[in-house]
C-alpha cells in the first residue's frame, strides 16, 4: 500500500514549501502533517514518502525525526496520555497522578492498553507548571489535576472513542 496525502493535506504541504528557501527546512512541519494524516505515527512507508516529497534520503528523514520525542515510530494508543514528571509537577504530586492512572488503566508508563485505547508516557515540563500537576492527552492539556478529575477525563475519553 503506498501512501499519499489527501487533497487538503497536499495543499497544506505545497503551502509549506513556499515558506522556506529550501525543501529540507519544511521537514519538521511535513513530519507533523504526515503523522496527523497517517494514523498518528510515522511508519517506514511514511518516511519513504516524505523523503521522496522533499528530495531527501530516507536516512535524512529518519535521522532528523528520531531526535524529537513527538514523532512516533510505532503505532500508539488512540489516546496518548503524557504525565509531566518535571520538578514543578513532581512537587505538586505528579508521581501520584502517574500511579493512579497506571492502576486505573492496568498498564505501566510506556505501555499501551490491550484495546489500543490508551498509552501512558512521561513527559518533561510542558509549560503548565503553574497549573500543576498536569498531563497532555494527544493535543490537549489537562491541568490542576485531582483524582476525581482523572476519573472524569478517562470516562470522557472512553465515550469519545
Amino acid at each position: 500500500m503506498s501512501l499519499k496525502f489527501s487533497d487538503e493535506a497536499q495543499k497544506k504541504f505545497e503551502n509549506l514549501l513556499t515558506r522556506y528557501p529550501n525543501k529540507r527546512a519544511a521537514l519538521l512541519p511535513v513530519l507533523h502533517l504526515a503523522q496527523e494524516e497517517f494514523g498518528g505515527w510515522v511508519s517506514p512507508e511514511a518516511i519513504s514518502y516524505i523523503a521522496q516529497l522533499l528530495g531527501l534520503t530516507e536516512l535524512d528523514v529518519y535521522d532528523t525525526m528520531s531526535f524529537y520525542t513527538m514523532f512516533y515510530n510505532q503505532k500508539m494508543g488512540r489516546f496518548v496520555i503524557e504525565v509531566c514528571r518535571t520538578l514543578s509537577c513532581e512537587i505538586m504530586g505528579a508521581s501520584t497522578v502517574t500511579e493512579y492512572l497506571e492502576n486505573k488503566l492496568g498498564i505501566k508508563s510506556g505501555e499501551t492498553t490491550a484495546d489500543g485505547l490508551f498509552s501512558i508516557r512521561n513527559a518533561e515540563c510542558l509549560g503548565s507548571c503553574g497549573t500543576a500537576p498536569m498531563m497532555k492527552v494527544n493535543d490537549d492539556f489537562y491541568e490542576n489535576l485531582t483524582t476525581q478529575k482523572l476519573d472524569k477525563i478517562i470516562d470522557l475519553l472512553k465515550q469519545k472513542a
Binding site: M92, G93, N144, T146
Partner: peptide
Amino acid sequence: KSIKTPENAVPEV
C-alpha cells in the same frame, strides 16, 4: 507526595 492542586483551581474538565 500527595496531589496538591490548589483549592482555588476550578476542577473543571
